[in-house]
Design a protein around this nucleic acid. Sequence first.
DNA 1: CCTGTCTGTGAAGAATCCTTCACCACTTGT
DNA 2: ACAAGTGGTGAAGGATTCTTCACAGACAGG
Lengths: 218, 218
Amino acid sequence: MAHRILVVDDDHELRETISEILVDAGFLVANASSGEEALNILAGQTFDLVLLDMIMPGLGGQEILPLLKRQAPRTRIIMITAFATVENAVAAMRKGADDYLTKPFKVDELLTTVRRSLEEARLLDRGLQVEKDSTFSCLANSIRRDILKLIGREQRLRFMDIARHLDIEDHTKMNFHLKMLRSADLVSQDEHKNYVLTSQGARILACLSQIAKDNSPQ
Amino acid sequence: MAHRILVVDDDHELRETISEILVDAGFLVANASSGEEALNILAGQTFDLVLLDMIMPGLGGQEILPLLKRQAPRTRIIMITAFATVENAVAAMRKGADDYLTKPFKVDELLTTVRRSLEEARLLDRGLQVEKDSTFSCLANSIRRDILKLIGREQRLRFMDIARHLDIEDHTKMNFHLKMLRSADLVSQDEHKNYVLTSQGARILACLSQIAKDNSPQ
DNA sequence: CCTGTCTGTGAAGAATCCTTCACCACTTGT
DNA sequence: ACAAGTGGTGAAGGATTCTTCACAGACAGG
């Protein structure tokens, strides 16, 4: 699915140039000629990335940036500045921009900056997802669900007690599953090495029993 | 974990003999000398299997059986009858016994019957679990979660529309995941081959978004 | 001190799960 | 009729996950 990009610039000609380059590169592009218009458009739909001119009549990039970040925190923002100065760059980044371009820029420069920024976003998203993935893949295994239920019932249990309760002879197998549960932050160990549920683990367990309950009347 | 077995017989000597055999075979054994005592014990703890003499003074096996089945439906019950008659066997099975032994029996006979019955219970339990396992292993994969969420949002979708929405080029890959979702009974197809959520799928989706919500504020 | 139990690690292989490819029948539009 | 798109199967290989085995430090009890 093509990425959606919003170009915000009061300079009509530059805006059109940028749009054309991006459209040719296969992106879905929308234009805004002022900060106010940009905010309106962003209220109605989401974009993956916004190219934002720092200096515009009315609301400039500097002013919109924090508003924009609050409204759509996951949208990437690339500032466009007239001059490459350290102050400009620092100011932009500090306000929440993810990258910046200095005018004038070449076609390649624009595209690589945009693509790199989108790629970073993707990696970041995936990073956030890792947590959820590990949660669900933990639940995929019935041994781990049993461990979770057991700890939920008994509150706190030693390693070998879990093994005995669940009739698991090979303790390294247990260890494997416990490690997964720990890394998914569903269980943890207290100061005496007892295994206990984390708050996340308790929530999941509630959810789990809810699903099981729904299921049982066939 | 060793299986727990309750031996119910008014004949003291036979009871002790059976107990000894079972204990030696590694089971955890408890004794009851009457039907009433058996019911008392069963009220306090659960057993994997009950060996029940058909004919006893007071409450006999015939009378206890239905009570016992209601109180602990997952406990296996083996009736002990004095004579091997078709009537005895049929009567016992019809009332809910899982197997039966005829007096007198050899050590091996007792043990194989007990072990076979426990094994059957295990398989039966696993059969019940299959449903839940497929549900959770479906959720383990992020593509399938995405499909579920997408269908939840759009209500009904054609095969290729799902592929396009999720930017999946290889439709056979999609098919693989859809097949898993179907076999877990989380999605199904309506008369026009649109994919829709099943009621189970809708429940799971609600659960899923609940977990995601809990997760997001880190 | 020695022995046994507890709680681990790391590596190798088995079992599952996922992706990809080649192919096919069916519908739809032209 | 024929091309393009849809929805599907089966088999092969790659990637992950799970189990098992060999080993080892810590610690408690005799």
